[in-house]
């Protein structure tokens, strides 16, 4: 792979994601104040000790933003990883096995997708107790329906190719066929899809937190911070917009990278590629 072939837009995306990850990893060292410490007046303007001002309880906004990166990225990433693992295993099993298993999985998936994700999440979260791992699992399961659909389509595309048939005729087992013949040829589109799902997870988590159903206070997360500070808007206090902008920026950065990956995938079609 040639570094110079990466367009500027993708570089911006990569830089943004890297910054967010650094914040998430080293939050205790980077943040000037503690995550939950009340250090000043309510809704102090930006500047002075508080670079971005303070929030509705007088906590430092910048510190909470940095800690929030940790929660938001961790939960979104965990949900995406689980949803991918789940979606990929089920979709590849369906695509390679075919027949009844494929029908069963696909029809059930159709059923899950017949309800809008947010509505589904609202209904389920209304019943389940509020735990972080439950939130992650709910997000993962709902998102895995999308992964299943694309994973199955991509795998079927490759599975009907003659080199897969040739491997079958040779007598290769399912594992060899999935991992050696199909998977290497689906990596690029799946990588792009992973990015897309990650961006969606960030937005989805933020939306749930904003609605009061995601991460529970006092832990800082970006969507929840918007909810905490939304009452200030009407007084012209922009504290709610700061975490909102952070969510938007991270999602844009991920999408910039995804956009590049997708273009790359389409221009590699039929080619060798060395990703």
């Amino acid at each position: 792979m040639n570094l110079r072939s990466i367009p500027i837009s993708a570089w911006i995306g990569i830089a943004g994601i890297a910054l967010a990850i650094v914040c998430a990893l080293f939050a205790p060292f980077l943040a000037p104040f503690g995550e939950r410490d009340v250090v000043g007046e309510i809704w102090m303007p930006a500047g002075g000790d508080f670079l971005l001002g303070t929030d509705n309880l007088g906590r430092d906004l910048l510190s909470r933003l940095i800690y929030g990166a940790r929660t938001t990225i961790f939960v979104a990433l965990a949900a995406t990883l689980i949803s991918f693992a789940l979606g990929m295993i089920l979709s590849f099993t369906a695509a390679v096995t075919g027949g009844f298993v494929d029908q069963l999985f696909s029809r059930f998936n159709d059923l899950m997708m017949a309800v809008p994700t947010l509505i589904f999440a609202l209904v389920v979260l209304a019943v389940l107790p509020q735990h972080l791992w439950i939130l992650i699992l709910v997000m993962a399961v709902l998102d895995s329906t999308r992964v299943f659909r694309i994973g199955r389509a991509v795998a079927l595309d490759v599975a009907v190719m003659e080199f897969v048939e040739a491997a079958r005729l040779r007598g290769e087992g399912s594992l060899w066929i999935i991992f050696r013949e199909i998977l290497p040829n689906t990596l690029s589109p799946l990588l792009a899809e992973f990015g897309l799902r990650f961006a969606f997870s960030i937005l989805f988590l933020s939306t749930l937190s904003f609605l009061g159903l995601g991460i529970q206070p006092p832990a800082a997360d970006w969507g929840g911070m918007v909810k905490d500070n939304k009452d200030g808007i009407i007084f012209g206090i922009s504290a709610a917009l700061v975490p909102g902008a952070a969510i938007a920026t991270l999602a844009i950065c991920v999408n910039l990278v995804v956009d590049w990956l997708m273009k790359r995938t389409s221009s590699l079609k039929g080619g060798r590629g060395d990703a």
């Binding site: 190719m161 003659e162 080199f163 290497p184 040829n185 080619g271 060798r272 590629g273």
Partner: peptide, 11 residues
């Protein structure tokens, strides 16, 4: 096969 392109794993 007829199409050697698709009969061999491009990777």
């Amino acid at each position: 096969y007829q199409m050697a392109d698709t009969a061999m794993n491009p990777r």
